[in-house]
Design a protein around this nucleic acid. Structure first.
Lengths: 327, 327
DNA sequence: TTGAAAGCGTTACCAT
DNA sequence: ATGGTAACGCTTTCAA
């Protein structure tokens, strides 16, 4: 009780929050007392009292991947600028975990949740009858809460068309998945197929290479196995920069020249892609913009739960680098 | 007040915490009531009452770097296994921010803090008179609180010796810094110098390449500038894998062959290093072990603030890969 | 084994 | 402009 050390019981509150008018005299007295006692307000009490903790949750599949790390970085940064703290959770690949987090959001330790679902399709979200303020990040087949997304379909299609325009015909895709495994993966697969169609290239299912996880190792192992039984394609569209880094490693080991023998493209524009060998052509979009939209939408919904559902779109653009240039 | 919906006012507490003996009958009644009301305990209230929030803070310089991301991933994972939530903060390169966070820890929203300082030397920590439970991560020149570290000096020395043993004589270091900029950087610099000495190689200050930030871009720019005014060294010890990735990119652009013309080594063993082109020799240590030690030490201190200061050591080992093999 | 009451530190409301 | 009082939801202490 810092209040004992000076004057009043709750005038201190006025001073701390600084909203109500306080006599300079009193304010000074209180401030001195606070200093002497090195007073810090108790956030738990404040949170209990006014129902807001000042914390938002951020749930990502796997924090250790460069893409997630960049997302987390920007969310934390933006949240901090607006006075919010961020509690981080990892969902792994477990949809159950995603559901748990939405419940936890109701325990009043966090005021809202930014969720980057992997597997979450309509069914999983619907379960949450009384949803806390939630903003979904990325490609999700549902429209029952706010979300921020990038048009993965269009981007994948455009990238495929660009590869075709460069004279490539046997364009393989690395990282294809079904809907249950990854919403983004499925959408990118569809965009890739549409791109082939629009380029007038016959669809060849043997050019779709599935893999186990969207990290370099998964990409490397899948491609290595693939090359044992197939000829080298003349282009490889990796659904993630991380996959592409794994693929480049395998191609270098196999003596395939990039981009002369095979063009390689990625998706996400992670920081390391520019410094890959060769530098990686990719789909880029602003993480910062994504974070700003997400936090804005969340703030908006936290202020008024009944506000209509809104979707924020983040623009993308293709960045051509050496990994696909020339032929 | 879930309690109204059944029986008792605080028997519900007993049921929830599950510690005290409760009649199966009553327990069932309460549990049913909880279900019906979809009751969730209010963590803020609990936290206010018993002085613990169940949250720990994790403060890292920059979450978007692969190294920090991996550390965060493991800390979150370990903390979660032990029932803790993790609030993430970024300190940037701002020592002021590090100090702020220690104060915030006293604000009762987090029970303890794991801090990975960049700049924090003795002076900065000393200021915190009433330190919250804090565990420091990494190389820090102070011993006034618990910490978990890797012997950067020995590792850097050993790596330098290994490069020398491979026949390299003009061994450059990329990422050297002074003490104010980075504690780890300075210690690695000293280990590098010691390694040269032990290998009988004369110290050549022109082979120490400073750079702006430990990310690929910083490494690339510093090395590119360096090569304009200097001959190619025959080895390059990068103080971070990220720096090495930037360096490899520049070397490839300059037509230098790795490892034939120049050996390149890194530090940290980030996931992407294995898939660099060529695969990167590096200093490896277990992030998981680091996280476990850190959380253990923190838990220990949170349970008893007066316990003696303890230091956890995480072993390292050098992983030779293609970037330094042969000559 | 369970109930009643007090109090954790804050802020909102009402009174002064 | 300031003080008093109550209440947020939980757990601990004491009593039944």
């Amino acid at each position: 009780m810092a209040r004992r050390a000076g004057v009043s019981p709750k005038t201190v509150s006025n001073v701390v929050t600084g909203i109500i008018t306080v006599t300079p005299d009193t304010r000074a007295k209180v401030e001195r007392a606070m200093q002497e006692l090195s007073y810090v307000p108790n956030l738990s009490a404040r949170s209990l009292r006014n129902g807001r903790s000042g914390l938002i949750g951020l749930a990502l599949p796997d924090l250790s991947t460069p893409y997630s790390a960049e997302v987390a970085h920007h969310i934390v940064e933006v949240a901090h600028e607006r006075g919010w703290g961020v509690q981080i959770e990892e969902t792994g690949l477990d949809p159950q975990r995603e559901f748990e987090l939405m419940s936890k959001a109701r325990t009043n330790i966090i005021d809202g949740l930014i969720l980057n679902p992997v597997v979450l399709d309509e069914s999983a979200v619907k379960l949450g009858v009384a949803l806390p303020p939630v903003v979904l990040l990325g490609e999700v087949n549902q429209h029952i809460t706010d979300r921020v997304w990038v048009d993965n379909f269009a981007a994948a299609r455009e990238m495929t068309l660009m590869l075709a325009a460069g004279g490539r015909r046997r364009i393989a895709a690395l990282g294809t998945t079904d809907q249950r495994t990854s919403a983004s993966g499925q959408v990118r697969t569809q965009g890739y197929r549409k791109g082939l169609e629009q380029a007038g290239i016959a669809f060849d299912p043997s050019l779709e290479i599935a893999c186990d996880g969207w990290h370099p190792r998964g990409g490397a192992e899948a491609l290595r196995a693939y090359l044992k039984g197939h000829d080298l394609p003349d282009a490889l569209f990796c659904f993630t920069d991380s996959l592409a880094i794994g693929a480049l490693s395998v191609l270098a080991g196999a003596g395939a020249r990039v981009p002369e023998d095979i063009a390689v493209a990625g998706f996400d524009d992670i920081a390391d892609g520019e410094f890959a060998n060769p530098p990686l052509t990719t789909v880029s979009f602003s993480r910062r913009a994504m974070a700003e939209r997400a936090v804005s939408l969340l703030t908006r919904r936290m202020n008024d739960r009944g506000v209509p559902i809104k979707t924020g779109t983040v623009d993308y653009r293709i960045i051509p680098r050496a990994s696909t240039l020339g032929h």
